[in-house]
Amino acid sequence: MAQKPMTKTQLVAALAEEMGADKKTAAAAIDAVSAIVTKEVAAGGAVTLPGIGKIYCRERPVRMVRNPATGETIKKDADKQVKVTVAKALKDSVNG
């Protein structure tokens, strides 16, 4: 059975312990990293988190999609999608 994902509270506690700092500092660090990644990816850039992966935005063109309920084909406008490429080091640590 799969474990539940780590919550932000658990992540803050683990980061505070790893850094040897208090939880308030760890929470501020997580919030700062999150804000930087969000701002950079929203502007069309990419962020590489060493050992974790690369987060970037990909533009999808206008395309035809099918409504599964009715079978009707409709035109879907161009949009953007956030993608994550996992680093080889993380893949190897999980599989090895």
Results as ranks from 00 to 15, higher is better:
residue 49 L to S: 05
residue 87 A to S: 15
residue 75 K to D: 01
residue 2 A to C: 00
residue 15 L to R: 05
residue 94 V to N: 12
residue 71 G to W: 11
residue 16 A to N: 01
residue 51 G to T: 04
residue 6 M to V: 15
residue 1 M to K: 14
residue 95 N to T: 11
residue 4 K to E: 08
residue 56 Y to C: 01
residue 51 G to E: 02
residue 86 V to Q: 10
residue 84 V to Q: 05
residue 13 A to M: 04
residue 30 I to F: 11
residue 87 A to D: 11
residue 61 P to H: 06
residue 30 I to Q: 10
residue 43 A to G: 12
residue 16 A to Y: 04
residue 37 V to F: 06
residue 60 R to V: 02
residue 92 D to F: 09
residue 34 S to K: 11
residue 57 C to S: 14
residue 50 P to V: 10
residue 63 R to N: 04
residue 14 A to W: 01
residue 27 A to R: 12
residue 65 V to C: 05
residue 4 K to R: 13
residue 61 P to K: 13
residue 19 M to S: 09
residue 75 K to V: 06
residue 27 A to S: 14
residue 22 D to K: 13
residue 21 A to Q: 12
residue 14 A to D: 06
residue 78 A to V: 05
residue 26 A to H: 09
residue 53 G to R: 08
residue 37 V to L: 11
residue 86 V to M: 15
residue 7 T to W: 07
residue 79 D to R: 15
residue 96 G to A: 12
residue 6 M to L: 14
residue 34 S to L: 07
residue 96 G to R: 13
residue 91 K to I: 08
residue 4 K to V: 00
residue 44 G to E: 02
residue 75 K to E: 15
residue 87 A to Y: 06
residue 59 E to D: 15
residue 71 G to E: 05
residue 50 P to W: 00
residue 86 V to R: 14
residue 58 R to C: 00
residue 6 M to N: 01
residue 75 K to Q: 15
residue 9 T to G: 15
residue 95 N to G: 04
residue 80 K to R: 15
residue 92 D to S: 12
residue 51 G to P: 06
residue 11 L to N: 02
residue 18 E to A: 15
residue 36 I to E: 08
residue 50 P to F: 01
residue 54 K to R: 15
residue 47 V to Q: 01
residue 79 D to N: 15
residue 68 P to F: 06
residue 11 L to T: 03
residue 6 M to H: 03
residue 2 A to F: 13
residue 5 P to W: 09
residue 41 V to C: 02
residue 69 A to H: 14
residue 14 A to L: 07
residue 65 V to A: 15
residue 87 A to T: 07
residue 86 V to P: 11
residue 91 K to N: 12
residue 71 G to A: 08
residue 69 A to G: 12
residue 25 T to G: 00
residue 6 M to Y: 05
residue 83 K to Q: 09
residue 71 G to D: 06
residue 85 T to G: 10
residue 91 K to D: 00
residue 67 N to Y: 07
residue 54 K to M: 05
